[in-house]
Design a protein around this nucleic acid. Structure first.
Length: 593
RNA sequence: GGGGGUGUAGCUCAAUUGGUUAGAGCACUGGACUGUCGAUCCAGAGGUUGCGGGUUCGAAUCCCGUCACCCUCGCCA
């Protein structure tokens, strides 16, 4: 094809009288019988083409143009006459009087056009992703994504980090999420796993003396997706040697400052820190959303003064009662609060007592049970007329916190209490090293098994491990976890000790993480790092709640790619090479019985 | 694996709650039109109501099963 001289978004009055050549897609055709207008689109913008009947052959060809045809056109850039300019178009002051036209590729009638794509159902958009991605919004997101990774690379480059790739074909470890497995052809019965993160490799790079590493790394976790979660996602992975947690946090803070400044022209302030314990107590969450109030208030002492069986029962069982005050929440109907009460049950609580403030008194809900503590309750909650108080009650404080933490966010959204345009950053620090897993009767890592215990708490390791804090930190933005990291264990003794605390035997540890333990024996420097979820970061910058919007080719909740139809069946021969045979379908068996 | 929602023309939706031949806008096809930019006007074509079964004189509508997509719990060191 012939070259183009310009892009479709750049022509202005200054280009008038120039002969130009453009190429792109037919965004819209308007045929007036005589004159034909074509809106030509490329990545850069839209330019109007004009075809007049004077050139019969050219006019004939233009007449055949339809949406999404790909064309090349040459013509004169002319100024539009007074009143004919289109202020909606950046190029609206000019148009191209075409002198030559080539249809590079005729398009079938598209299932939808880029202009319509925003209104089209996601299923159709994903099936025809190449059309969906033609819409401006999607190209804008991909552009932002590119800019962000570019800023990251520039930032780390100028701070003497090295970008190093780590393997995709890795050793499977049963810890953490479910692995995606890849069968080995060369070694019968053996499997690789796709990396859940480059965690161990980056630590070993520190042992190897690379000192400062980063990678924009694809990670794979075979778990059910969510609106903000895909099985395959991207992390900015960072690791540094000879650092403490402040240095890691500062370095990431500077990076976010660069990104928010360059992409949104927003200044990121010095980011506050909050301990995990405080976050849970005040917000019922380890990723508190600070864009609104409604903090959790412990009213266990007041609750025990009532005759309300639900309160008393929970407290007698060693539980707690906490509450949040919803400003103006009394406007919610019984039906609406009932619906919320039903909703919170999914988090493990039996129900949700409520009461409203009316004329300085408690009204409706469980008001009658609260009579003896009315005044103290109103004062402690800081409640006013028209407010709603929601109670979280359970014999386990973790459930109370979870319920109220989730409720707080749900209500804030429902009642539009979140003022848009806010950026509330927070570091959550002092995570517990481990938490008790009742189901399996053992301690699990809160972060991961390589996180260093806080040296101040080492004396508790044997006596009260649940109280040991770790050197882990999460960076939170508007109530969502942007990333997290920790200072790692860099000596074999501590690592062995943590493994044994987690119930991983010496033998198991040797089989699963032997290479790491080996590495720690040969001069491992103190090191630590962090990983940021790139997809979520872009979601924030582009103000979307759908992770699929920020991924060029995402998968559905069923793990399907609707465009390529992956996953799919494979040939017997392929299976044979991999020494695999499919197990009979359980479903079919069940029907036959 | 559990809970909730959706599925009707290529796309977005409607169908008076079980009642005649399932409609509209956009897109598409043909025609008209020399300044539109969401062009306009006229005409036309387009349907396995996701799929399979059942109830009924009669099903897009009710029931059972199933599939896909979305939200969510579990899961996600």
């Amino acid at each position: 094809m012939q070259a183009r001289t310009h892009h479709c978004g750049e022509l202005r009055k200054t280009h008038v009288n120039q002969t130009v050549a453009l190429a792109g897609w037919v965004n819209k055709y308007r045929d007036h019988g005589g004159v034909i207008f074509i809106d030509l689109r490329d990545r850069n913008g839209i330019t109007q083409l004009v075809f007049r009947p004077t050139n019969e052959q050219l006019h004939e060809t233009a007449n055949r143009l339809r949406n999404e045809d790909v064309i090349w056109v040459q013509g004169n850039c002319i100024a539009r006459e007074e009143g004919m300019a289109n202020p909606k178009l950046e190029t609206g002051d000019i148009e191209i009087e075409a002198t030559s036209l080539e249809i590079l590729n005729k398009s079938d009638t598209p299932p939808f056009t880029p202009d319509e794509a925003a209104k089209v159902g996601e299923e159709t958009r994903l099936r025809y992703r190449y059309i969906d991605l033609r819409q401006k919004r999607m190209q804008q997101i991909l552009k932002t994504r590119h800019r962000v990774t570019k800023i990251m690379r520039d930032y780390f480059d100028s701070n003497e980090f090295l970008e190093i790739e780590t393997p995709f074909l890795c050793k499977s470890t049963p810890e953490g999420a479910r692995d995606f497995l890849v069968p080995s052809r060369l070694q019968e019965s053996s499997f690789y796993a796709l990396p859940q993160s480059p965690q161990l490799f980056k630590q070993i790079l520190m042992v190897a003396g690379l000192e400062k590493y980063f990678q924009i790394a694809r990670c794979f976790r075979d778990e059910d997706p969510r609106a903000d979660r895909q099985a395959e996602f991207t992390q900015l992975d960072v690791e540094m040697s000879f650092v403490n947690q402040d240095e890691v946090m500062d370095s990431i803070e500077c990076l976010t400052r660069d990104i928010w400044k360059q992409v949104l022209d927003v200044d990121v302030p010095k980011i506050d820190r909050m301990t995990y314990a405080e976050a849970i107590n005040r917000f019922g969450s380890d990723r508190p959303d600070l864009r609104f109030g409604m903090e959790l208030v412990d009213i266990s002492d007041l609750a025990s003064q009532t005759d309300f069986k639900v309160f008393k029962g929970a407290i007698d069982d060693g539980g707690i009662v906490k509450a949040i005050c919803v400003p103006g929440g009394a406007s919610m109907s019984r039906k609406e609060t009932d619906k919320l009460a039903e909703w919170v049950k999914q988090f493990g609580v039996g129900g949700m007592p409520v009461t409203k403030i009316d004329g300085g008194k408690l009204a409706t809900g469980i008001a009658k049970f609260l009579e003896p503590i009315t005044e103290q309750l109103i004062e402690k909650m800081g409640a006013k007329d028209g407010d709603l108080i929601c109670f979280g009650v359970d014999k386990k404080s973790t459930i109370v916190h979870r319920v109220l933490g989730e409720l707080r966010v749900k209500v804030a959204r429902q009642l539009n209490m979140i003022e848009p345009g806010q950026w509330k950053w927070l570091w959550v620090v002092d995570f517990p090293l481990v938490e008790w897993n009742e189901e399996n009767n053992r301690f699990d890592s809160l972060h991961h098994p390589f996180t260093a215990p806080n040296p101040e708490d080492m004396h508790l390791m044997d006596t009260d491990p649940g109280k040991v804090r770790s050197l882990a930190y999460d960076i939170i933005l508007n109530g969502s976890e942007l990333g997290g990291g920790s200072i790692r264990i860099h000596d074999k003794e501590t690592q062995s000790k943590v493994f044994s605390l987690l119930g991983i035997s010496k033998e198991d540890a040797a089989v699963k993480f032997g290479f790491l333990l080996d590495a720690l024996r040969f001069g491992a420097p103190p090191h630590g790092g962090i990983a940021l979820g790139l997809d979520r970061l872009i979601m924030h910058l582009e103000n979307t709640t759908n992770i699929r919007d920020v991924i060029a080719f995402p998968k559905t909740q069923n793990g399907a790619d609707l465009m390529t139809q992956a996953p799919s069946l494979v040939d017997q021969a392929q299976l044979q090479e991999l020494h695999l045979r499919l197990a009979p379908s359980l479903k079919v068996d069940a029907i036959k019985e």
